[in-house]
């Protein structure tokens, strides 16, 4: 087991390395490059630009630049924002909690609701409920997140006035826990929509697979009530493959968070990326790219560890 995890860790590091190359290449090969922000400033001559480029090391070959950036990154220096010269890690760190909070709430909703829909769909497979859940999930996967956000704002904020149309807290008032929660409901719901659909589909398939297993027949042959058979014997087995799904879904969730944050003016990493793109703030953009990939890889790694903990077959072998 330890060997397996070590192997996965090594694999993740290799992937992270490739990821960094891709990110670096995308940013530096794109037309304009990091220098383009200065080209917009009036009064800068060609010579000034060249001097700036030299100071920033942008006139050297790309592999050399990459190597420098990488060694600094490994030393913990993620660079400084072009906008306000703050360390990139601090800039990202300031936005991280909002995004994680939003993602956490969405994961909670999607796991609870998705698992429930999936289990019910599997138990009553081919019933009206199951049909509606199947079609509903496919439609939910087709709705653009931002549009669903607009509809939710229109319905619950503009029309009914139940939920605030954006922001993390009410501006200018004391921020209480309830106020946080009140603001969290709508964006979490919007971000969760796609994930609920995905979870319910996978859960249904997994549960259907499990309830046809021999050990479920054994449990029934013992005379156990159906409730015990399903929720004690079947669910635990059906949930095992879902742990991996939770890890795999992190990039999708992060992408969804970006869009949701935009619609709900939520001060998270997604908004930061958009703002940084507008300012051509390369170090921050690169930092966010690396950070999101890191989050995805960590997600997979934790999913592996958690699966090993939850599945007795992996634990002692």
């Amino acid at each position: 087991m330890a060997n397996f995890l070590l192997g996965r860790l090594l694999q993740s590091l290799v992937l992270l390395f490739i990821v960094s190359i891709i990110g670096f290449a995308v940013l530096h090969l794109a037309p304009g490059g990091p220098l383009s922000q200065f080209a917009l400033v009036p009064g800068l001559s060609k010579e000034d630009l060249a001097r700036i480029a030299h100071e920033m090391g942008l006139d050297r070959p790309l592999p050399v630049q990459y190597w420098e950036w990488l060694t600094r990154l490994l030393g913990g220096d993620w660079g400084h924002s072009y906008r306000d010269n703050q360390p990139v890690l601090a800039v990202i760190g300031g936005r991280l909690s909002a995004t994680l909070e939003l993602m956490g709430a969405a994961i909670l909703i999607s796991v609870v609701v998705g698992v429930w829909i999936g289990v019910m769909g599997a138990i009553r497979s081919y019933s009206i409920f199951d049909m509606l859940a199947t079609v509903g999930a496919m439609v939910a996967l087709s709705i653009p997140t931002f549009w669903f956000g607009l509809i939710v704002i229109y319905a619950f904020s503009v029309h009914l006035g139940w939920l605030p149309p954006g922001n993390r807290t009410t501006v200018g008032s004391e921020s209480t826990f309830l106020d946080y929660l009140h603001h969290l409901i709508a964006p979490a719901m919007v971000l969760a929509l796609v994930e609920v659909a995905i979870w319910s589909r996978y859960m249904r398939a997994s549960m259907l697979d499990v309830i046809n297993q021999d050990y479920i027949r054994t449990a029934r042959a013992k005379g156990l009530p159906e409730r015990t058979v399903l929720w004690h014997h079947a669910l635990r087995n059906a949930l095992l493959p879902m742990i991996a799904l939770a890890g795999v879904e992190i990039p999708t969730l992060l992408g969804g968070a970006l869009v949701t944050e935009t619609v709900f003016t939520w001060p998270g990493m997604g908004r930061l990326l958009l703002d940084s793109l507008g300012y051509r703030d390369y170090p921050v953009v690169m930092g966010i790219l690396m950070f999101s990939a890191l989050l995805a890889l960590l997600g997979n790694l934790f999913a592996d560890i958690f699966a090993a903990v939850a599945d007795p077959r992996i634990r002692l072998t």
């Binding site: 992937l15 490739i18 990821v19 891709i22 990110g23 995308v26 940013l27 794109a30 990039p251 999708t252 992060l254 992408g255 970006l258 869009v259 990326l273 958009l274 793109l277 953009v285 966010i288 790219l289 999101s292 990939a293 995805a296 890889l297």
Partner: peptide
Amino acid sequence: DAMLCFPSIFLLLIL
């Protein structure tokens, strides 16, 4: 695998 680590919307937006 590495490409799939990024949220595709991030790459898309940056490009």
